[in-house]
Design a protein around this nucleic acid. Structure first.
Lengths: 238, 238
DNA sequence: CAGCGTCCTTGTTCTCGCGCAAAGAACAGC
DNA sequence: GCTGTTCTTTGCGCGAGAACAAGGACGCTG
């Protein structure tokens, strides 16, 4: 159910549309529709033909991958303003992961077939998209560095801080991760198990660093958490 | 020592220059010089200002990152035809890693300042570069998947197979990794230790899957190695 | 408010692979 | 050929964290 017309003001502040004139933005937008996703709705599924790409306007998504053996990992969290589902730019015809809404969300949708045209007709967009993908590569590489060199507690620290930075909003007493996230999710982001994450967060909670609840997380002391994540302060767990 | 003039035939077959007309290629090339690097020469260093970017014409490079604690990991191997040192596309002003020649190498060199101009003036180049970076993101993400879900032996298997695919050439009896690579390097590619890699390769050697030597590696049975890497056949080590 | 499903905690056991140590090969230079 | 350096092999003990196991708490539904 496409909206009648998409307004340029929806997107013109996004880094993705920087340096583009109104006419160009309108042209790109004219090929899009918008779509709503409810909690737990699947936006696209791993292995399915990548026939659409998206920009998230509102809400949050979790992108996961499963191994042939059924092990799951969380690839990333999609925040408002993020481009996602761009299999075309990754040289693939299918989606490498599954995207699920973790809260009510709204996204702009393009057919994948529009990608090439947009990239070739709007060099500024291509340059911006490259920046975005580059930033993602950056992040993927620092995750590799973390997973291969750091002990679990520090990895969890980095993951929590990243969540706070990208998806947190300030609240009295700390930074609230403003969407439902389970310990299982955090485990899948850090390559460990639910059990270990639970133990670590319990230890942190006792030290007053964070405060949790069922699918809730409040970072109370990001500074000390950063020290732990960077190995400048000894681990607390067990 | 720049060569007098760079010939278009050096690069016109690279995927990076696909769909570009001769004039455009000449224009891009006119801003480049070429440079030779001897074994163990450092092309650029982690943290240094990213004032140049490169395309490797001949040879191999190893790109590494070190953590603040001095732990090292191998980010990737650069093969002929690869673009590297493009910090600009990753939204950085410094190099995130160190590139070292592992054999005699030759690269084309551009000043980083030329990047923006090239990307904006040649949409086809921008699109190709995006593909390249996308492919790299792809690879980074599958490494994350591997590191977080697979046991060491399988990770080493994947790493060796990737080397064979990207940097191997057929020889009687198997696929030769055609540059000097140490067990330490493999350990740093898979997030493990030199010792563990040595044990695993010894076990494989006894089973006739590979055949090694000082900084040498020959993959004799890629099929069975793939089965092990994919967990379809039980691990051999110890 | 009873009942059920999901998510979370906490204890115990077990194991992979890292840390440490030391000796053995291959190569480079003199 | 000798010697030093770098790369590699191999043995042993230990510890982080996974696997297994059993409850407990929260929130939704009827």
């Amino acid at each position: 159910m496409p909206t009648a017309a998409l307004d340029r003001t929806l997107v013109c502040d996004l880094p993705l549309f920087e340096q583009m004139d109104d006419l160009a933005i309108d042209h790109v937008l004219s090929q899009a529709t918008s779509q709503r996703f409810g909690m737990d709705d699947v936006v696209f599924e791993q292995g399915a033909t990548a026939d659409r790409f998206f920009i998230l306007l509102h809400g949050r998504l979790r992108v996961t991958q499963v191994t042939p053996e059924g092990q799951q990992v969380v690839v990333r969290i999609v925040n408002p303003g993020d481009l996602f589902g761009i299999a075309k730019a990754l040289q693939r015809s299918d989606y490498p992961g599954t995207a699920t809404a973790v809260m009510e969300s709204v996204a702009l949708v393009w057919p994948t077939s529009a990608w090439s045209g947009i990239v070739h007709q709007h060099p500024a967009f291509a340059a911006n998209a490259m920046q975005v993908i580059g930033g993602r590569l950056q992040e993927a590489q620092s995750r590799i560095l973390e997973i291969s060199t750091e002990i679990v507690e520090r990895r969890v620290g980095h993951a929590v801080l990243r969540l706070a930075n990208q998806s947190g909003y300030p609240e009295e007493g700390g930074i609230r991760i403003d969407f439902p996230i389970s310990k299982q999710d955090i485990a899948e982001m850090t390559g460990t198990t639910l059990h270990t994450v639970s133990r670590i967060l319990t230890a942190w909670e006792e030290a007053g660093l964070v405060s949790g609840g069922r699918q809730k997380l409040l970072v109370k002391n990001p500074h000390r958490l950063l020290l732990i994540a960077d190995g400048l302060e000894p681990a607390l767990a067990k």
